[in-house]
Design a protein around this nucleic acid. Structure first.
Lengths: 191, 191, 191, 191
DNA sequence: CATGAATGAGAATTCATTCAT
DNA sequence: GATGAATGAATTCTCATTCAT
């Protein structure tokens, strides 16, 4: 009840800061991220941020890694819940349509992540793991190449719809997904 | 005359600066772009950059717009050159495999562009136009939904292969492209 | 004169900053030197100091170099003014007793300079030139080895007297200087 | 007993810290010394350094004092070991040539010490004691003024040779030392 | 006794921007 | 029109120092 409660044993202060960093990125863009803004968003003193993270780059690397792993996990969960190929297709369409995002900010953050990862070896590894994990999840329902194709479709449709003034409808996406998912059910025209 | 050459009218100084800006973005990332670095990369004095561009944000918007239009144009050119559906499929695979990039830095810059565009209305419009232009180019060879599907596939495979430690081979991509491109040649199992 | 003095109303701003840096070093010690203090001492805005000097280390290197050259010049001047060996000896004693300092702060700054130079290749060169220059000035009056000896004596006595609670008197120093200066006037005991 | 070894009483942790401080000074310069670096160099936690030393300035004062006393002691030992004037001269030359340093870093640290002492009363006393101790050691072999002269010579030659691109050879130093040491063996030209 | 956590203050440095020429 | 000089405002990051344990 006195003036200052110094050194309060905040439990997940480090994690709070990482989350706050993503908040700032999503609200202002990676270009505008600063220690100060992260500290303010996390509700901790500036010195606290620099105490936990030696440099901003490392902080962002960790934050994006957490993001990638969370989205990746949700993606897997959705696919793992599918019992039949049809349910798996449904899950794929859900993912394209945003079901793998846990919040509004996620797609935007993902594009920031791609830009960041393009120049950051540590995050390239994370991205590569994410890709592999997605494929494995898909490969429980589809053959390996089909899994890759569906993964690419998901990525492309999600991205395009995010920017598209006239996005592709869910029904149309479902039709395309079916075409790819069931491509082996009919003989290929040319081998 | 010999004394002083009074500021030779440099022709495309403005364009040089825009290109230099993309060079800086590709080398250091959008987070690190500054007037000074752009000036250095363009080989012009700092005052020159601020003279031509009042605002760094506007400079980047112009630079990314040029990039988007250049890549988009190249994409259309590749598709327009195709005479048959098979050639068009080939062009699609070429694009995935990097033929639409005019330089090494382009894919990386594209991901920076997405992040930038996600928060910039002016560039969202550019992106949307790009999408529309791509589809129109594809629609000369495929039906509208197939065009969208192929466009998404291109985007997804290009992006995934950029980050993937074990990228999908050209032959595999070609197989998927064929499946999608020729999806109407056989009766669908279920409507 | 007629050329053009573009936007430089302040004549020697750069030099003013270098002098101010030495003022701060002499008043607070090298450990406490900061851009801010230098700016305050020079009466210029902080941004001005960083405009002229990219980093503090380079600023100090320049400042110390100027100091070394100024003291060295004064040393030479005193010796060059001597017409006879006796006058040269007198000059040497003067130097020990502080005549080569242009201000109170100089000896103190010199010891800061030594510490700084010990770890700075650029200043080691400056120091080495200073030594050579001193010797050449002395060598106009004495043989080369005697010049070195006198130079060492000057350094040692100046330094010791600076710290000594009971410094060596001018007369005693003069006696020693004479011994060394005239060491060839009598046969050496052993060759 | 097997459970926990309750903080083994580290014997000379305090001394370890003092030595580490000098290591940091010699490696990075006094300007860059910090508690953190000292802690790292000593291999102790940061809190340990601030626990033993309330004040960085005091820590450095103690460290430099130890250094001064160690060098001074070694200086005396070398001179005390001399049995004849010739041996004492030899010892003096040894000292100039670095025999009094117990490590490579010592000369460098000595110049940092001078800079530090110039502004620190406590260390001025240490320096003054060192000077007196040197003279007493020399005075066992030479008359008082000669002792002072030799002490100054040692200082000057050591310092100059440390910075000199073409240092004075041991033989030349020995010749000068002899001149000074034996200055009373022949009648002075002028009294 | 000893130390890890935490933080406020201040450091160097960078930079967009302004302005006189 | 074009540019070098200049500066105020941030920014990242370092650090001494303070506590709770």
């Amino acid at each position: 009840m006195t003036q200052s409660t110094p050194a309060a044993p905040v439990p997940n202060r480090r994690d709070r800061i990482l989350d706050a960093a993503l908040d700032v990125v999503s609200e202002q863009g990676a270009i505008r991220v600063t220690y100060r803004k992260i500290a303010a968003a996390a509700g901790v003193p500036l010195g606290s941020v620099t105490y936990y993270f030696d440099d901003l780059h490392q902080l962002l690397t960790e934050a994006y890694t957490r993001l990638a792993e969370a989205v990746s996990q949700r993606y897997r969960d959705l696919l793992d819940a599918a019992r039949t190929s049809e349910e798996a297709q449904e899950a794929v369409v859900d993912i394209v349509c945003g079901e793998a995002w846990s919040s509004e900010r996620d797609p935007l953050l993902t594009y920031e992540l791609y830009a960041f990862a393009a120049r950051n070896p540590e995050l390239r590894t994370v991205m590569s793991n994410w890709l592999q994990s997605s494929r494995e999840a898909l490969a429980r329902h589809f053959d390996p190449l089909t899994a890759r194709a569906l993964d690419a479709l998901v990525e492309g449709f999600a991205l395009h719809n995010y920017f598209d003034a006239s996005p592709t409808s869910r029904a149309d996406i479902a039709a395309i997904v079916r075409t790819v998912a069931e491509r082996h059910k009919h003989p290929e025209p040319h081998p």
